Measured scan of single mutants.
Amino acid sequence: KELVLALYDYQEKSPREVTMKKGDILTLLNSTNKDWWKVEVNGRQGFVPAAYVKKL
């Protein structure tokens, strides 16, 4: 599985998104969309802005 690092805090704005804190390590589930990547964090799956994370 591929991991990404949260570069910034992000507060979810819809049920399809997830909240993350700067420094969190997230599991990358899908990065086919250039703007929104699907990740898993704390057992929850959802989208975060691709610009807010970096592949490890």
Rank of each mutant, 00 (worst) to 15 (best):
N42M: 11
R16W: 15
A50W: 02
S14W: 07
K13F: 06
E12C: 12
V48P: 00
I25L: 11
K1M: 13
K55D: 04
V39L: 04
F47Q: 04
Y10M: 01
K1I: 14
E40Y: 08
E2W: 15
V18R: 02
L29R: 04
P15Y: 11
K38T: 10
L29C: 07
K34G: 11
S31V: 07
V53R: 00
Y8G: 06
L5F: 10
V53I: 10
N42H: 11
E2V: 14
Q11F: 14
K22T: 08
L29E: 03
E12M: 13
E2Y: 13
D24L: 06
N30Y: 08
N42P: 10
E12I: 07
Q45G: 07
K13A: 12
S14Q: 08
Y10D: 00
L56V: 13
N33D: 15
E2M: 13
G46V: 04
D24I: 05
E17Q: 12
Q45C: 10
L28V: 06
Y52I: 07
S14T: 12
W37I: 05
K34D: 12
G23M: 03
K1A: 13
A51Y: 10
T19C: 06
T27D: 06
K22N: 04
V41A: 13
D35S: 14
T19K: 04
I25W: 05
Y10H: 04
E17I: 04
L7N: 03
Q45Y: 11
S31T: 11
V18F: 13
K13T: 14
A51M: 12
W36G: 01
V18G: 02
P15H: 13
A6L: 02
R16Y: 15
N42S: 10
V18K: 02
L28M: 04
L26V: 07
W37H: 03
L29W: 07
V4I: 08
E17D: 06
L3P: 04
G46P: 00
L29G: 01
Q11D: 13
R44D: 04
N33V: 05
E17M: 06
T19V: 03
K22Q: 10
L7T: 05
D24V: 05
R44K: 12
L26T: 01
L28T: 01
R44V: 09
K38Y: 15
D24T: 08
K38M: 15
V18Q: 03
N30S: 13
N42E: 11
D24A: 08
L28F: 03
Y52T: 07
V18T: 06
A6S: 06
G23K: 02
P49N: 02
K22W: 04
K34F: 10
Y8T: 09
L28I: 05
N30T: 08
